[in-house]
Simulated assay, not measured.
Amino acid sequence: MYWYASLIALIGAERLAELVVARRNARWSLARGGVVHGRGHYPWMVALHTGLLAGCLLEAGLAGRPFVPALGWPMLALVVAAQGLRWWCVAALGRQWNTEVIVVPGLSPVRRGPYRLRRLRHPNYVAVAVEGAALPLVHGAWVTALTFTVLNAALMVVRIRCEETALTTLVPAPSPGRAPA
């Protein structure tokens, strides 16, 4: 269980690093006239993600969930893959990435990195969903995995609608090979 607590602490540290990047990017965006959308759902996202980390530790510890290698190792691999996808998204979006929905007028939607895949419109949320299901299952915390997955799905409906509405205010990106009008 000690190594699992260390994993959760590492993920917590990663979340803090995200907040540092997000705050820096928010300052940059707001200085350029950025508009924040969907403030109402943001505290729920913070609570859900904090609850995920706490739930992993509490359920694994209090319910005595064992580490089952046949489940734990593949789930750990998914957690690592989700982190890679998340930071690929952060790198691709650059200063436009944030934990809040902040849109800077006049910018174009990002179409590089994982965002060039038109069928995968919100790759960062795929990373969140995979991590939220896999992280608890690394140590058999299936109730936490199920609870997070259901609550996250409901929250993502709100978040994605908010983000899609906000993105309509951006200037369309030029098609590849064509000069902007």
Rank of each mutant, 00 (worst) to 15 (best):
V130C: 11
L78E: 03
A81C: 07
A141S: 10
V150W: 07
V143G: 06
A82T: 12
W142T: 01
W97Y: 12
A153M: 11
R86S: 06
N98H: 10
V110P: 09
G72Q: 00
W97K: 09
P109M: 05
M75G: 12
G72M: 01
P109H: 02
L137Q: 02
V126N: 08
F67Y: 12
Q83G: 14
R118T: 15
R121Q: 05
V110I: 10
L135H: 08
A141G: 13
L117Y: 14
L151V: 02
L135D: 03
G113M: 15
P69I: 07
A145R: 15
V126M: 10
V128D: 03
I102V: 13
R116T: 12
Y125R: 00
R119L: 14
W88M: 15
W142L: 02
P114E: 04
A77I: 08
R95W: 13
V138D: 09
P123H: 09
A70S: 07
N124D: 06
V143A: 12
T99E: 01
W73H: 11
V103I: 13
R111I: 07
A133S: 05
L151I: 02
N98Q: 10
Q83T: 15
V68W: 02
L107K: 11
V79K: 04
V68L: 00
A133M: 13
I102E: 11
L117C: 11
Q83Y: 14
V101S: 06
Q96M: 07
P123D: 00
G94P: 08
V80H: 05
A153I: 07
N98M: 08
A133I: 10
E131H: 09
R111C: 08
R86T: 01
L107V: 00
V104K: 00
T144H: 10
S108T: 08
R112A: 11
A127M: 08
P69L: 04
